[in-house]
Design a protein around this nucleic acid. Structure first.
Lengths: 189, 189
DNA sequence: CCGCTCATGTAACAGGTTACATGATTTA
DNA sequence: TAAATCATGTAACCTGTTACATGAGCGG
């Protein structure tokens, strides 16, 4: 039951609607958790029912009305309890890694294509994260912001996302290089 | 349905029993996928039923008998098809990241403790991966092994695991440093 | 003799994914 | 005028996790 806490954590810094939350969780920016809109709407309903968040209706003319959610004191207490409990280890689950594991037995041209695709996605995400970080720290130097800024949580998770995507990118490119070198070596050894 | 392919990929290089597979998938070495023993036994049964792997009984005196599994031609074809299909993006799902996201609202002593714990786990895993890599390449230089060695798939996924755990470790330590500096700044600003 | 390793599962439950449904408004 | 955006969900299905079951040998 950790989607709960991910939603609470996301609502700490801004009041959001389900739709806005869904954007934050799916469109790239999901640097600390990933979830689909359907999960989020369901989870918001449960959180509100349990009194951990409170929603207020915002009536709009041109757009459909929306409900903005805030974390309640009970919600904060729940997050405290979550933070104090033992952290579950995080595991890898990546289709691309499975394909690379089988690299010696499958067509390497296909694999190289998929690695290139992933490298590009990783690069785009890294760029996005860099921009987000710049926006968050504003005019301040990074060290200064981290020492004295308010709300560094999102900044810290974004730093992790950035490092992760850079690692991804580098690994894809290196793997492509190795596979190509082997192909060349196989043709004229 | 990707556990299927992860199991197939794991069985490519050695004939394994369910028990041995389970060890490879749970005890640390899960650098390209993670799964529990129960999932694996169930998946092995399905794979055998579908003719993608073949099992042979090995009778043992002192130990209970076991069944060793090998990938069939149909299994290889299935892996080929999987490799050719579009790769699903991989997503982050980490309790610790959720806690860090909420860093501004929860007790930082607790958080620092959990980050230190995770840093230690990451360090241990990185060490393990380094040893695995050394074992895999044997006497050869890394470049040489990667260019001419057989079975580099597992080596490549292990490289990724290593980079991932190092990134994890660095991020945990850096985050701890930042949180401590902020605590100090709050006491005497 | 207690706990660990080998060896294989079943059953119930929680969590995540896919497919589908609706409908107005702005942008290309 | 077609497509994307805003806005919210339901239902069926697939996947992963937790809890439990069994039993022999080996090491401290």
């Amino acid at each position: 039951m950790a989607l709960r806490h991910a939603v609470l954590a996301a609502l700490l810094d801004e009041e959001l609607s389900g739709y806005q939350l869904a954007k934050a969780f799916s469109v790239g920016v999901a640097n600390f958790w990933h979830a689909l809109p359907q999960q989020l709407y369901a989870e918001l309903a449960r959180l509100e029912r349990d009194g951990l968040i409170a929603g207020r209706e915002v009536v709009q003319d041109t757009r459909p009305n929306k409900r903005l959610f805030t974390v309640t004191d009970a919600g904060l207490a729940e997050l405290d309890a979550f933070a104090a409990a033992a952290t579950k280890p995080s595991f890898l689950r990546d289709d691309l890694a499975v394909k690379v594991q089988a690299a010696d037995h499958i067509d390497s041209a296909v694999l190289i294509g998929q690695l290139a695709e992933r490298a590009e996605i990783a690069r785009a995400k890294a760029d996005l994260f860099e921009n987000l970080l710049r926006t968050m720290r504003g005019a301040a130097e990074e060290d200064d912001f981290l020492r004295h800024g308010t709300r560094i949580g999102p900044y810290l998770t974004c730093l992790r996302g950035l490092a992760f995507e850079r690692g991804n990118h580098d690994w894809c490119l290196r793997t492509i290089g190795i596979l190509k070198a082997r192909e060349a070596a196989r043709v004229r050894p």
